[in-house]
Design a protein around this nucleic acid. Structure first.
Lengths: 342, 342
DNA sequence: ATGAAAGCGCTAACAT
DNA sequence: ATGTTAGCGCTTTCAT
């Protein structure tokens, strides 16, 4: 190879065949190590492959097989622990069976998804995992219509119509609220995700349920909807604290949001938990490092990832399975950010 | 299509051709919208494509072209803001020119890399971006030997032999240390990355340089090497604080590490910054949210990603370019986690 | 402007 | 056990 030259194919099955003095189908056989081939020949071919640095062209294989062993992964953004853990679970499960991951990040740009989804279903990937906060997006219909294997991560079940793995959001919010009520809080602020997310709706229900049980009237002024794209948790906290009858505790929809809440509270010269108790959601590493350590609703992120991947793998085997809606258990993790109100 | 049926190709160029009453090469022409084709015919074909939901098979295209418009992205782990920002930069740059991203996560498993790299160079991807803390890995040689387009992110320059984009690590550490010295600290702990990373070596040099300038003797006991895989920052802080002459300030190698430092310090019933000043590295979102807000050395993460992607794109155009080693400027961001020693 | 034909690198029947 | 052949879906000369 001339210095700097890099043609597409580099070493092909054909080059190996010539060098080893066999037909290229024989080479293919040892490459896939599928068929029986004379051990001696195999050794020779293997040696040549090694020497010439042969690596099979994946696109050619995909073309033949009609599948690529690639899974598309559509995420909103990387860089939060939340996603990191879920992806770790996915990755681990997929790696074992030799699947690769194609990453699609929608970042702030709404609308990218549809475009991605079409190239994905265009044969590039065999299946699709979606970790995208969403309501009823149109591309989901597309996915279902062509019966393309996919699973939704962290959406709340059946309503989506697509296979999904989520958590017990209602119970999670219920537990958190219950805990606060038990501590004797009666004014509990709730910084919720936007209500277009069914997870947010579920959590609100849990929140209200607990309130009801304690005979506390629901005050809409205490729940503020936060946008997940550009979190306003800080400003919303300000709003909550400016209420005529401000909350003595605030429940946030994620750990990062909770940190913002804490930050805002401090700027009001209020103490945590003395003046204001705070609860987060997710239990990312952060929660146990910050000061004070954050009480939060744990979601089994890693398990969600693993489960989602496994479900997708199953669909790949048998696309006609009825969609499953799996819910993993949340768990309240009590740390230091809550105490009884003054 | 029968319910549940999903063959590989779904709608092919051939189906469209038949339905539109043209040859498939004509369909190809409108699909690539490359060649001149009768506007009328084009409309008709387009209409049929739309109706039948045609999406080109990427593998077939890649096979023909010998390139895939896919870039491999090798990362150690997702889920820290650091990676998130870098990837955002990469993603943005690549999206504009229609490249896709193949994600390879090495997680804790050392050794996965080599395997990945070989499938990547096997024609799956056109180029490779590596965000992997590393010294001199053997697969880098492989990359260079076959002249495979790649760029290293966040390594310190020339020594790697591969094109790279990093930051001014030495200056960053120098600035931080200088700031602390200026504040009158003389015992400055340094929780460094392992010295097998050249970035760590550079930072140490910066640290020592500043010390020298102030005539402060370098005490090896004050620098502790932390493993990036399983951070021991907390334990190392304990060690530092247990010194006969403990530090009055600690410089950490990342923001998350700094949080762990802070946590450990608090457990010793010491105040920040009153008893111990703390400085981080990176300036992730975290830094400005925690309590107290973290003084840290900002790295232009997003820009690093963009730059790396752009460099790779340039290599793709002309593989015979000499490798570039780009350094982006760090900047000390002063917040609340430092003050003069008691 | 469009059709016919070759071929990208590989796998998998089908022969031998 | 190994070679021959026919594609996988697409792009791209080369004809017409």
């Amino acid at each position: 190879m001339r210095q700097g030259e890099r043609k597409t194919g580099k070493v092909t099955i054909f080059d190996i065949a010539k060098a080893a003095g066999v037909s290229y189908s024989t080479v293919s056989r040892v490459a896939t190590n599928f068929d029986r081939v004379n051990p001696e020949t195999r050794q020779r071919v293997l040696a040549v492959m090694q020497e010439m640095g042969y690596v099979a062209n994946q696109h050619a294989r995909s073309l033949v097989h009609g599948k690529s062993r690639i899974i598309g992964l559509l995420v909103h953004a990387l860089g939060n622990q939340y996603i990191g853990e879920v992806v770790r679970g996915i990755d681990e499960e997929l790696f074992e069976v030799g699947y690769d991951l194609m990453l699609y990040t929608t970042h702030r740009q709404r609308g990218k998804e549809a475009q991605y989804v079409s190239t994905i279903t265009g044969g590039l990937a065999d299946g699709l995992l979606l970790i995208v906060p969403m309501g009823q997006e149109s591309y989901l219909d597309a996915l279902r219509k062509v019966n393309f294997p996919h699973v939704l991560v962290d959406v709340d079940g059946v309503s989506s119509g697509s296979p999904s793995v989520g958590t017990t959001n209602r119970k999670g919010a219920y537990d958190a609220t219950h805990y606060l009520l038990e501590l004797n809080h009666r004014r509990i602020g709730f910084i919720s995700d936007v209500m277009s997310l069914n997870t947010a709706v579920e959590r609100l229900k849990g929140y209200q349920l607990a309130l009801e049980e304690y005979g506390v009237a629901f005050d809409p002024a205490l729940v503020q909807e936060d946008d997940f794209v550009r979190s306003e948790a800080r400003a919303l906290t300000d709003k909550l604290l400016a209420l005529p009858e401000p909350p003595t505790a605030i429940l946030a929809s994620s750990d990062p949001a909770a940190l913002n809440v804490m930050d805002s509270v401090r700027e009001h010269n209020l103490e945590i938990p003395g003046d204001i108790s705070v609860i987060g959601f997710d239990d990312t590493l952060l929660a146990s490092i910050v000061n004070p350590k954050l009480t939060t609703v744990r979601e089994p992120l890693y398990q969600m990832g693993k489960t989602a991947a496994r479900m997708l793998l199953e669909q790949l085997q048998d696309i006609d399975q009825p969609p499953q809606y799996i819910q993993l258990e949340t768990e309240l993790v009590v740390r230091e950010s809550c105490c009884p109100p003054r």
